[in-house]
């Protein structure tokens, strides 16, 4: 047998093996997507069955079908109330994180500032959000401002801590290199520290994306007439459980979308392999 006889057979086998491999891979990808969907479907079925079998009255807990109908029927109302909450969450997110980044920059360059003010930051962070909210409503009135402030406060701390760490945990050899090159502090910051901090910053931003929504909603609980938070309170006082669940679902879908947007931004920005983070 010569090689020319073997080659086509071999080619065929390789092609078959590759086709088999791709088939298995596709199946695996499909499987991984379908399993969570199946999980949600099972949970909804159990929920619906329990509500039906135990005859739970609709003012205690709704059936999933009722929630979906409410979502559809009250879609306009839900969206008009989501808009202010979204604006508050996103503004708070921007304000809190920008402030955190700026203060982290100051802390890294002026150690005395960090030693002086970091304890205050820690103390403010230990106050629960629900306790901070009334204080800020008294200070800032009943508009969007206190909600934005609460969302900002909630975002501030994780970003500050992560950003300080990201700016400081620069490879000591890279610092020596910058010194050998007589780089200024400004150059060290913009060419080294800032890039080094990006993976740290994004892990904080991903936390902030969901917590800023929590902040805005908690802010709306206190004497607000609009927003997802106000809607939740109203639905609760009216024993309108279907509306309550629908509102919660709208709020959490917004949270998830915000989180995904930040994840996409991270993937577009941090294109290098992140350094080993402990």
């Amino acid at each position: 047998m010569t090689t020319s006889d073997v080659a086509p057979a071999l080619h065929y086998e390789v092609a078959a093996a590759e086709a088999e491999y791709h088939r298995l891979r596709r199946r695996e990808v499909w499987r991984r997507r379908m399993l969570p969907v199946a999980g949600i479907a099972i949970a909804l079925t159990v929920w619906a069955t329990l509500v039906h079998v135990l005859k739970v009255p609709p003012f205690v807990a709704p059936s999933p079908l009722l929630v979906i109908t409410t979502l559809y029927a009250k879609f306009g109302l839900l969206m008009t109330n989501l808009l202010p909450t979204a604006i508050e969450a996103i503004s708070g997110f921007a304000l809190g994180n920008l402030t955190a980044i700026l203060i982290a920059t100051v802390f890294v360059h002026k150690k005395t500032m960090e030693e002086t003010f970091f304890p205050i930051v820690v103390i403010i962070n230990t106050i629960p959000v629900v306790a901070k909210a009334p204080i800020l409503v008294l200070l800032l009135g009943n508009g969007m401002e206190p909600k934005i402030a609460i969302a900002a406060l909630i975002c501030f701390f994780p970003t500050l801590v992560n950003m300080v760490r990201g700016l400081e945990s620069v490879n000591p050899r890279a610092m020596e290199l910058m010194r050998v090159l007589s780089a200024s502090r400004r150059e060290v910051f913009f060419k080294l520290r800032l890039y080094n901090s990006l993976p740290y910053l994004f892990s904080a931003l991903k936390i902030s994306a969901s917590t800023s929504v929590i902040g805005a909603i908690v802010g709306e609980w206190i004497g607000s007439t609009y927003g997802i938070g106000a809607l939740i309170i109203q639905a609760m006082y009216n024993f309108d459980s279907a509306m309550l669940y629908a509102t919660v679902i709208v709020g959490s879908i917004f949270s998830v979308m915000f989180f995904l947007a930040i994840s996409v931004a991270e993937r577009l920005t941090v294109r290098w392999q992140a350094p080993e983070m402990q």
Binding site: R173, A174, E176, L177, L192, Y195, W272, P275
Partner: peptide
């Protein structure tokens, strides 16, 4: 010019 034990390249 200085060359370190680890290459100390900027990963980005």
């Amino acid at each position: 010019g200085f060359v370190f034990q680890e290459a100390a390249l900027l990963p980005w």
